[in-house]
Amino acid sequence: MSRFRSIVGRAMLATALLLGCQTASSAQTTPRQPLRIYAAGSLASSFSDLLTAFGTPPATAVQATYGPAGALRERLEHGETAELFASADMAQPRRLAQGGHKGSVVMFARNRMCAIGRSSLGLTPANLLSRLLDPAVKLATSTPGADPSGDYAWAIFKRADGVHPGATAMLEDKAQQLLGHPGARALVPGHSAAEGVFLSGRADVLIGYCSGASVLRNAVPDLVAVQFPQPLDVSAPYGLIVLSGNPIAMRFALFILSDAGQTILAQHGLIPVTLSGTHSP
């Protein structure tokens, strides 16, 4: 039933976007506006490919801003403008919709959470929690509130109490929030913030999105990625909202939901939600 409601919801959004495209296109008398996109940092590579495949009109300037979704949402609430906002969760676009931005929120992909750590730790799904609880293992996460990845990590911590009583408090106490907050800086020049976590020796394990694990492992030697098993695993749905009547933004949102767009997302390690003939786990 929940899958049926999700499909119906996306179909309704597609209909609304199509109608919006027709209305905005027929009413447009001013020069074409830029396509300004605010999107979660974990979407940077996939959205770059999506925009290339989408092929915006020559007169349309694309301005893409990537970063922690919670921080981007706050910037939009404080007056910055974008035509489309894509988040690594559903909460951020819903807050914009509830705060007065007229637009429908739709889930366009999902992700998984992984523990990415040094191979010397011997991480496996079976021993993952005990390794994370080991006082000698330095643990890093993103920042809850500012970045959905941090919220997902804290949700995993809450589930841990059901497996090991007292684990929630222990994990929250030892976790270093090294990523995702507005003031976060790369710990090692020339490397991403996530790479710097390991290259600087600040952490042995980073809780993050499985979709980004392969890039991180290519940059930092001797890392492994282990997906959180049940009952620790949490769902990581990604949501978007179109924030203006710009027909290019509406068509781009439809492209993300199309088979072609969903295939590109899958190529970047995300789980498609509308790809024909597939079923998300």
Rank of each mutant, 00 (worst) to 15 (best):
P31K: 02
F255E: 05
G20D: 04
H164L: 15
P165R: 13
A61Q: 12
G70K: 02
L96R: 05
A136P: 08
N127D: 11
A155T: 08
R5I: 05
T278C: 11
T124G: 15
R217T: 01
A39L: 10
I116Y: 00
A59W: 05
P144S: 10
A153R: 06
A203P: 10
L216N: 14
Q28K: 12
P165Q: 13
V163T: 14
R10T: 04
T56I: 08
A213L: 06
A64M: 06
P165M: 13
V106L: 00
A61R: 12
S200L: 09
T29M: 09
P281H: 05
Q227L: 05
V226E: 01
L128M: 12
Y152V: 08
V226H: 01
H78I: 07
R73T: 06
T23G: 09
A260G: 11
P31W: 04
S6V: 03
F108R: 02
A24V: 14
D173A: 15
Y38W: 14
G277R: 13
G180M: 02
F252N: 08
G67Y: 06
P189I: 12
T65F: 13
M170H: 04
T278Q: 12
G117W: 02
V234L: 11
L257T: 04
A44Q: 15
R118L: 13
L179A: 04
L123H: 05
V205A: 08
N218I: 01
I116R: 01
D161Q: 08
Y209P: 10
A69K: 03
P272Q: 04
A126D: 15
A88H: 03
A59I: 08
A64W: 06
F85E: 01
